[in-house]
Design a protein around this nucleic acid. Structure first.
Length: 283
DNA sequence: ATGTGTTCCTGTCCGC
DNA sequence: TGCGGACAGGAACACA
């Protein structure tokens, strides 16, 4: 589910309630999600002040006053919901625990942060602050697509000789970190590149053109609060609305949005995942 | 070393 | 209505 724009939206929503606040109470309602939670997670969180909320790829990282960083991954269906603050009080102040509420953080500013994840593909971990690269989940990630290290020269070099389809290459978090199935489909449509094309056999100029397109799509999606299909919600419970701007994703059988194009959007399966594209304007 | 398929889990939707 | 099957935003892992 949550790709970079959704995770960034959640981070921005959580920051006002969490940064500078102390975790007064940590309730851990099961042993783990995708992997077991770290030893004594509740005790290690209790009393910690959140110094800063950061994002790396699709991970939210909370630097704590205890010298540890809390890593949060939302998997496919994870939500981080705020209740009990000015932001969240529009809804019920502190709703009773719901199904799949796995971790609850009670902040000393009155906010309650609930990690809800039906499919349990999400994760939480604790590691020493200051060495992200030492964490196995972060160590091999590629550059941030909105950062300076991700540029035309980098992407061209990263794709040289690759025989895998460009669709799979852009989903590969070691090449560029943060794109998922929705945004790769949207990016390839805007760039006019077929998802089936072998990554290493795309002209350099066309690969270079992907870089600003990726930045543009992600920036627009963040500005829209992400894309809500089923599970995703912003931290205040609101929906994102970038799904209304989809040109291909989940639009099989619909007309292509490109002006003048009369073709119909197709769906194919690549690597077990749906790719949506226009057979006429993506080559 | 690369590329590809399988797997974790619950919920929803669609056809019969 | 109920039931089976396909499918869903991720990504580690086991293999050819």
């Amino acid at each position: 589910m949550p790709e970079l724009p959704e995770v960034e939206t959640v981070r921005r929503g959580l920051a006002p309630a969490m940064e500078g606040a102390v975790i007064a109470l940590a309730e851990v309602r099961r042993d783990g999600l995708r992997w077991p939670f770290p030893e004594r997670m509740a005790e290690r969180l209790t009393g910690a002040r959140v110094e800063r909320l950061r994002r790396r790829s699709k991970y939210i990282l909370a630097d704590l006053s205890t010298g540890e960083t809390l890593l949060i991954h939302l998997g496919m269906s994870g939500r981080m919901l705020i209740s009990g603050t000015a932001l969240g009080s529009f809804h019920h102040a502190h709703p009773a625990p719901k199904k799949h509420d796995h971790v609850v953080l009670g902040m000393d500013d009155g906010a309650r942060i609930t990690f809800n994840d039906a499919r349990r593909f999400g994760a939480m971990d604790l590691f020493p602050t200051g060495d992200d690269a030492a964490h196995p989940l972060l160590a091999k990630l590629g550059p941030e697509p909105l950062g300076n290290a991700f540029n035309e020269d980098y992407l061209i070099a990263a794709l040289v000789g690759k025989t895998t389809p460009i669709k799979a290459a852009l989903l590969d978090q070691h090449i560029v970190a943060g794109l998922g199935n929705i945004y790769v489909c949207e990016v390839l449509h805007r760039a006019g590149i077929s998802p089936k094309r072998k990554a290493g056999r795309i002209a350099g100029a066309r690969v270079a053109a992907l870089v600003p397109v990726i930045r543009e799509v992600l920036a627009e999606a963040i500005a829209s609060g992400g894309s809500s299909l089923k599970d995703y919600r912003q931290a205040d419970g609101e929906l994102g609305y970038f799904q209304h701007a989809f040109r291909v994703y989940d639009r099989e059988g619909s007309p292509c949005a490109t002006p003048g194009c009369t073709a119909t959007i197709r769906r194919i399966v690549q690597g077990g995942r749906s790719s949506f594209y226009c057979p006429a304007c993506q080559r």
